[in-house]
Structures are given as C-alpha cells and as structure tokens.
C-alpha cells in the first residue's frame, strides 16, 4: 500500500501503473469516464431521446388516426347506404301514392264530368221545352187575335155590314171565343183583349 500512496503522491515514479494489477482503477481514467459519460448523457437526454420519442408518438398517433379515419369512413358509408335505402323506399311509396291519387282523381273527374254533362243536357232540354212552351203560347195568342180578325172580317163580309163600332165587334168576338173555349180547354184569360188593329 505504501507504494500506491507514494505513486499517487508523486505521480512521476515510473512503472507502477504499467505493472499494477489490472483491477486497480486508474484515477485519471475514472475521471475521464465519468465526465465523458455525463456529457454523452446530457446530449442524449436533452436532444436525442426527445426527438426519437416525439417521432415515435407521432407515428403512433398517425397510425391510430388512420385507423380511426378508416373506421369513420366506414360508418359514414353505412349511414349513407341506410339513408339511400330509406330515400329509395320513400320515393317508391311516394310514387305509388301519386299513382293511386291520380287514379282516384281521374275517376272523380270522370264522374264529375259525367254529372256536369248530364246537368247541361237537362238544362238544355228544359230551356228548349220552355222556349217551345213560350212559342206555343205566343203562337196561341197571335193565332187568337188573327183568328178573331179573320172571323170578324169574314163575318162582316158575310153579313154585309161593316161592324165599324169597335166595342160591339169586340163583344161579338169575345162571345164567340168564349163559346170556342167551351169546346177547347185553352187558358183564355188574355183572350178578351183583342186590340182591333184592323179598325
């Protein structure tokens, strides 16, 4: 041990470290070892490991993100398919509903048209009948005065005297017509108003 101490003290004595047992640590090397490792550790801990950890976590995130995106895309595709099917079914229902409605509406229109045509026809028939009636009436009235005139004319001719007196002649005509009405059931309320346009 004395030799060790003296070498440690002087440091100039030749040969000790060259022949020393190899398991005696050399102080200089020990210091170099610790300092060099400390420097390496600082560089690795401050710069190298953070960078590597960052890229590892980024990669994990990227892979997980990719999987998540794929999953999301699948979910979206499924939702779109479901929605498409629902829309298709809805469209089919709508189409059949419209067809049904059209059929019903068509039938309704036919019925309505038929009714309208019937009404029109009835109206036309009624109007025609009314007109016929009116014309009949008119003709009857015209005929009555005409017949009166003719008859008066004829009578005056036959009798040979001019029945100039209007009042008398109209009385005679009325009487004559009243007799006629007994024979024919015709409404003769206005028959007593022959105007005697001839006189």
């Amino acid at each position: 041990m004395a030799a060790v101490y003296s070498v440690l003290a002087s440091g100039d004595e030749e040969g000790f470290w060259a022949e020393a047992a190899p398991i005696i640590p050399h102080p200089g090397e020990l210091v170099f070892g610790i300092v060099a490792f400390a420097i390496l550790y600082l560089v690795v801990a401050r710069h190298v490991v953070p960078r590597l950890e960052q890229v590892l976590s980024e990669r994990t995130t990227a892979i997980e993100g990719g999987l998540e995106r794929a999953e999301q895309a699948q979910v979206q595709a499924e939702a779109a398919l479901t929605q498409y099917r629902a829309q298709l079914a809805e469209a089919r229902g709508e189409a059949s509903r419209i067809r049904q409605e059209a059929t019903e509406e068509g039938a309704a229109i036919v019925v309505e048209m038929r009714a309208r045509a019937q009404a029109e026809a009835d109206r036309i028939v009624a109007a025609a009948q009314q007109q016929i009636e009116a014309e009949h009436q008119h003709a009857l009235i015209a005929l009555r005065s005409e017949v009166g005139d003719l008859a008066t004319e004829l009578a005056s001719r036959i009798v040979g005297e001019a029945l100039a007196d209007e009042a008398r002649s109209s009385r005679v005509v009325d009487r004559f017509l009243a007799e006629l009405e007994h024979l024919e059931p015709v409404a003769a309320n206005g028959a007593g108003a022959p105007t005697g346009q001839d006189g």
């Binding site: 060259a18 090397e29 060099a36």
Partner: peptide
Amino acid sequence: GTDGPFAVTRASVVLVLSVVGICWLLL
C-alpha cells in the same frame, strides 16, 4: 502528461473520441 495517476491514457482519448463521435452521429 505524466505516466502517473492522472495521466491522459489511450483509453481516455479513445473514450472522448467515442463520445464526440456518438454525439455527432446521434444528433
């Protein structure tokens, strides 16, 4: 330096070189 207890040995020099090289490579 000396060949005493605080001599700079070949092992020390190689170690320092290795640390410089490793740091440079890793960075």
